[in-house]
Design a protein around this nucleic acid. Structure first.
Lengths: 335, 335
DNA sequence: CTGTTAGCGCGTTCAT
DNA sequence: ATGAACGCGCTAACAG
């Protein structure tokens, strides 16, 4: 049987308004009727129709997810999909659902903001965003609760791994512990804030410790993924190699490893390598990749908590960037 | 400025009803006014509020996605996430959005069907489902447009890779082309229809060609993923190995490869291996994995087309199982 | 061909 | 503490 607050009201000899009040914990209802209603609702399995609530109340208990496709990172990406999964778990547990924000829907084009208004989402989570994307800045200006991970937009709260720490720990290990003389970098595409920060941290470390950086030891991968890493490694090989190498992300690093293997360069004998992310596959590869582990679950849940907090206290104005500490995981590509 | 059909109607000196008609391509509107309205709508960036449409029309232009977590396959899974991505692309292009069906939302529990009613989704796509999940069968009984991939539920249209063909091609290659004497199988968990079918096909092939199967040459992986494959391989190694080996899926196969490598078993000299799926990583692994390539994009778009067709013609009653042909990709784990 | 109007199911005053 | 009634923005049926 199809139920509305009307039917269940009449079943209980009450009025629709009262039912609404107990559902939304609003207004005054006697403890007794409250429990009676709750019990009945649970028994018959009544659930309020979302669209009607949304229409009336301007809330949706839905969080819009920006997963930009411009960067050609798909749901397949091991890092972002994992973060999204953890985020999803957390917010669902708190009663929120996820809905992908899409700007091109059939023939309609709308900005993220328009989409949010239209869908009345309670908040927005930017998992994958492109700095070239105007829509993100528009979102930041409007007062809609919004968090991002891995990308830094002025006006938006961000949770991002401590890239400076990651690079520092890596370089300390290579220069100090393992006493290498030179360390190169295969940097990821610089549109990504994370990659950008890692590159900056790399330079800053060398400046601070008065260590030289040979220009031919720094190569930029064209894009994300294995193939970009492979290409970048080929380019690096054109010149004498450094003794150690940092790579912007694991998926790129695996391509680098493969290229070296194909070219007969031994790891870690000829060159020691450290990746970034600790994707699931890093430890399964041969040789197993030494890498900077990002706590994806912590990043995701921190983002989720922050967003829910923002949703419930829209008066928080101070933008915040939360850094999540990282950890160096030693495996077979370093000594 | 906030707009509704009323405001734009008055801006154009028309009535709300007319606006609605042109938006929904329903009823009779003169070509002239139609274009006038469309132009104005585009100019001011008006988009109908979804919740109001839904409330009234029983449609949502949303497709519910079942991505069961019981199987511990997350968004991270390379095969399923890829399929979902392709599906998403296709339906978004047709004007539909995706929303994850979640059965446990905060304190509320509802069945898939209840959720669908509540959200008024136009159809359901089952990407990852568990045969033990009652909710799936309930869904099949009700008349809600529904398709699945990789899982076969009576009453639900399915798009599934041609597993019989995949196994046949693999075994032909090993037994016939490469003249092996014995081929084993590391089967995936049998709750998955795909894995079940591959196992059945494996047996059927041997029966048909009057080839023996040694029981110790068949091992069942406990679960999905690299680690399960590694474990299964260890178990296989306890007895004399077959000359060839089929593995239920690539992610499992990569674990198998690693185990063999660790145990000093050479591939393909000591044993030839064929995986299943052709995940992105298969060709990057060393040795590159020979595998049965599933056309993930074709599977996904076929599913999407089928579902949209079902949504638009609810009178189609005949359940259909569409088999998507596969292709053997020869790489370095076979000769 | 265009306009009018009655709900869709719910949340929220304002009375009682 | 409970109820009545209005309206959120839209669609569809009907009237003109």
């Amino acid at each position: 049987m199809k139920r509305t607050i009307y039917t269940i009201a009449s079943e209980l000899g009450l009025s629709p308004g009262t039912i609404s009040k107990v559902i939304n914990r609003t207004g005054n209802v006697s403890e007794e009727t409250r429990e009676r209603v709750l019990a009945h609702i649970k028994e018959v399995g009544y659930v309020p129709v979302t669209s009607a609530r949304m229409l009336k109340s301007k809330r949706s208990y839905t969080i819009g997810v920006v997963f930009s496709e411009d960067l050609h990172i798909g749901l397949e990406h091991p890092f972002f999909s994992s973060i999204l999964q953890h985020f999803k778990n957390y917010v669902e547990n708190e009663g929120y659902e996820l809905s992908f924000i899409v700007s091109k829907l059939g023939n309609n084009r709308m900005s993220y903001y328009e989409w949010c208004m239209n869908k009345k989402v309670d908040g927005v989570y930017i998992v994958v965003g492109d700095y070239g994307d105007e829509g993100l800045y528009e979102l930041a200006k409007k007062h809609i609760p919004c968090v991002s991970t891995d990308i830094l937009i002025p006006g938006i709260h961000s949770i991002i791994s401590d890239n400076i720490m990651g690079i520092q720990v890596s370089l300390d290990h290579l220069y100090h512990t393992n006493r290498l003389k030179s360390v190169g970098l295969i940097a990821g595409p610089q549109q990504s804030k994370a990659f950008f920060e890692r590159y900056e941290a790399f330079k800053a470390y060398h400046a601070e410790h008065q260590l030289p950086i040979r220009p031919e030891h720094v190569v930029f991968a064209e894009s994300f993924g294995f193939t970009s890493g492979y290409q970048a490694a080929l380019k690096l090989i054109e010149n004498p190699l450094p003794e150690g190498l940092l790579v912007g992300s694991d998926d790129i690093a695996l391509g680098v490893l493969k290229a070296f293997k194909d070219k007969g360069i031994r790891i870690p004998q000829d060159i020691q390598i450290i990746g970034y992310d600790d994707i699931a596959f890093a430890k399964h590869f041969t040789p197993a990749l030494t890498t900077v582990k990002q706590d994806r679950e912590l990043i995701a849940t921190t983002a989720a908590k922050k967003l829910l907090q923002l949703i419930n206290n829209p008066n928080i104005k101070v933008e915040e960037v939360i850094r999540i500490p990282v950890e160096l995981v030693l495996r077979d590509t370093t000594r």
